[in-house]
Design a protein around this nucleic acid. Sequence first.
DNA 1: CTGTTAGCGCCTTCAT
DNA 2: ATGAAGGCGCTAACAG
Lengths: 340, 340
Amino acid sequence: MATVPSSSPSTGATIYSVAERAGVSIATVSRVLQGAGTVSSKTSQKVLDAVDALNYVPLGAARSLAVRHHEAHGLVLPELSGPYYSELLIGFESRAAELGQSVTLMLTEGKGDIGRAVRQLATRVDAIAVLGSAAMPPAVARALHGQKPVVIIAGTPQDGIEGVGAENAASAERLTEHVLAHGRTRLLFVGDPAGAPDIADRHVGFVAAHAARGLVPAAPVRVAFREADGRAVAERLLSGELEADALVCANDELALAAMTRLQDAGRDVPGDVAVVGWDDVMTARYVRPGLTTVRQPVRELGAVAAERLHDRVAGGAPRLEPQVLATELVVRTSCGCPRP
Amino acid sequence: MATVPSSSPSTGATIYSVAERAGVSIATVSRVLQGAGTVSSKTSQKVLDAVDALNYVPLGAARSLAVRHHEAHGLVLPELSGPYYSELLIGFESRAAELGQSVTLMLTEGKGDIGRAVRQLATRVDAIAVLGSAAMPPAVARALHGQKPVVIIAGTPQDGIEGVGAENAASAERLTEHVLAHGRTRLLFVGDPAGAPDIADRHVGFVAAHAARGLVPAAPVRVAFREADGRAVAERLLSGELEADALVCANDELALAAMTRLQDAGRDVPGDVAVVGWDDVMTARYVRPGLTTVRQPVRELGAVAAERLHDRVAGGAPRLEPQVLATELVVRTSCGCPRP
DNA sequence: CTGTTAGCGCCTTCAT
DNA sequence: ATGAAGGCGCTAACAG
């Protein structure tokens, strides 16, 4: 017969109350709940009945303390607008769940002290994945590194912190070359390479494609990647401040906003200006002309991140080389290709 | 001088190692870290230094066990496609963070045993918000209810479980009346009222608007709300199986897919058929004609849910009446309104 | 202002 | 197959 140290009925059932009701020891209850050890089916049933009757919900914190694992992964995202982050989150959560890990999410946007928030997060998870190095002050990254496994998604791996990402430079080069092959000569890269590591990579590809033809592209139009920024770029084009016969945008939001503004002003896309983007968001296939863009395996990226964390928590060594997933060029008609 | 029970350097610093290094007791360390009690600034600094030197990250589980609170809220979402869920999540996370709560996310899509997953979640959070009652088997809802505070978002409140949601019926009625006022007579409701509680409410409004004019609408076209379903409905319209001069769709994905397919087949929207939707997704303002739809304060909805959970955890009583937020009709031109 | 000392609920050897 | 008992790291009285 088990002893119940202090039964607080209001607080809900504990392993003690379950044991008491089932007439067994707490060790037995623990065994049947964990499926560990061997328990006679008769005893097991008694325990299960008690659990059911008491509506027992184990206290995760107590278990975590005992097993010395949170069984949870942390994911730090800058924000959640557009399909990119959602897809990443889906992939991450799904894989984490398959591996028996919960996921605790943190959005940095709007948080005053990101460092504090991340440390707080570190308090309750076994490992952390962060999207883009910019989202997390390097100091925090270093602090966490060595304490908990950390992987950076789509960011520049720093100080030997493991990274996973999608291929950017090569597909940017392919995309740019595709536009160049349409006879366009004055391409403009819209987006700030300094804003995010993967944007930087895309710009590298953009430049490389030009270089391959002995060309030197104009300087990038450094803007953030919201729709408003895309509209603003279109305005600058319309006013003559900027000149181009093709816009290679850092993402689809930018491309769509620019394209639509241009069209509303009477410009022909792609006749007057070709416009291409990145991400293949839903809208990209609804607009006319359809937006030529690059599709990234974002969901898989999230899954890979979750997997790496799990492996690291299990004692696996960090990979030295970042894992990079392939991307795919999606050609529609905004680039100047004829309608199918 | 503090005693360190068992120092495992590999496992990272504990409150004991910090105390030892700072030459104080663990109680003092706890005090400065929690900002509770009073500690001389000199001692405080010593502790902070030790924390820093050891790169101490407290173990959340231990704290949770001691304070008997997880300081975390759970959020259960069916999936994460489209902007609706993301917005909700943003609102929820932001408000939760402001209240000092972490958020643990769970997606039911793809999970075999949702009940098991929810119970597992309940293990590590103080309270749970669930989107749509359909996502969580009633049995689980009952089991959790009484154990942990639960609020249902945009679902039919059951058994006195608290609910929060956006207004649906009245705006659906307004939207439908708007279409009717354009002289349309054969409206079709596209979406399955049985699929989700808020769809049911929208259908109620749809019927009410007809009733107000002494009309009886056709039976709803019961389909899920993915793009493929919208295209399928368009096909049935094109083939003559379905007949209508206006489509009132349960959400924008459906509306956009149907509208585009119709246009690709040469139909004029809104000339031949008006199409309206729900949610005001990004694409809605990019397509031509612009999609007339209804905007919901989704982000705020998430915030309210987080707030309610927090209040309940603090001992607040569940609200008897569901909290419902106002929605807004967004009139563009797909309904038949003239271009501005 | 600071140290001592019980627990918090669960897991896990070690006996039996 | 089952029970007893120690410990996981931290908080919160209670003393001093």
